[in-house]
Structure formats: C-alpha cells, structure tokens
C-alpha cells in the first residue's frame, strides 16, 4: 500500500474518533440516537480498517466472504437471542414483582 493511502486511512480513523467523541459530548440525539450515531461511526472506522489496512479491497473475494459470513453469524446469534430474551423479559419482571409483593407480606 502506498504511503498516502496508509496515512490517509489513518487520518480518516483519527477524524472519525474525534467525531464520535465530539458527538458524545456535544450533541444529544437521545439515548438511541446517540447509540446509532456511535455505531454508524464505528462501522465506518471498521470499514476503513478492513478495506485498506487489511487490504480487503485488493484481496481475493473469498477472504471477504469468510469475514462477511462470520459477521452474519454474529448478527444472527445476537438478533435471535435478543428477540427471544426481550419477548420473555416481561414474564421475568412480572415474576419479580410478584416475589417482591409476597416478600412484603
């Protein structure tokens, strides 16, 4: 990789780091809004690292596919587990409330 490409990627990463810290301190988008902003910036940083530092743009397609499949696996795992837990969480809350009530008596 050429020196400008290396330094350019690095400067981009630093800029995005400054941006995400800046947004954290300076902009209030609500809990979820700030989380989304932070994640979008983090994903931009990750893409820079993957594309240039890890030279996925110049590399064999297959290596990218491995990485994409792994990301897919993580997303699958988190989303399904998250969906289920958030579905049964009200039952857990209910049970805890009942227990607390019973304890008061």
């Amino acid at each position: 990789m050429s020196i400008p490409a290396l330094l350019g990627t690095f400067m981009g990463l630093i800029f995005l780091t400054a941006l995400t810290v800046g947004v954290h301190y300076g902009v209030d988008l609500g809990g979820k809004g700030n989380l989304i902003a932070a994640m979008v910036i983090a994903t931009m940083k990750a893409s820079l690292v993957l594309a240039f530092f890890m030279h996925l743009v110049f590399d064999k397609r297959y290596n990218f596919m491995i990485f994409a499949t792994s990301v897919l696996g993580v997303v699958l795992f988190i989303s399904i587990a998250f969906t289920d837990v958030s579905q049964y969480e009200p039952m857990v809350q209910q049970r805890q409330a009942d227990l607390a009530k019973a304890a008061e008596k």
Binding site: I66, F67, T69, S70, V71, G73, V74, F77, I78, A81, F82, V85, S86
Partner: peptide, 17 residues
Amino acid sequence: LGQELLFFGGLFCAYSI
C-alpha cells in the same frame, strides 16, 4: 479471524441483551 469474531460475538450478544 472469522472464529475470533464469533468468539467476541458471544460477549457482544450478552452486552446487547
């Protein structure tokens, strides 16, 4: 690296939940 991702994935899962 793919397996590393899944390895950390477990923690990210616990985190998100």
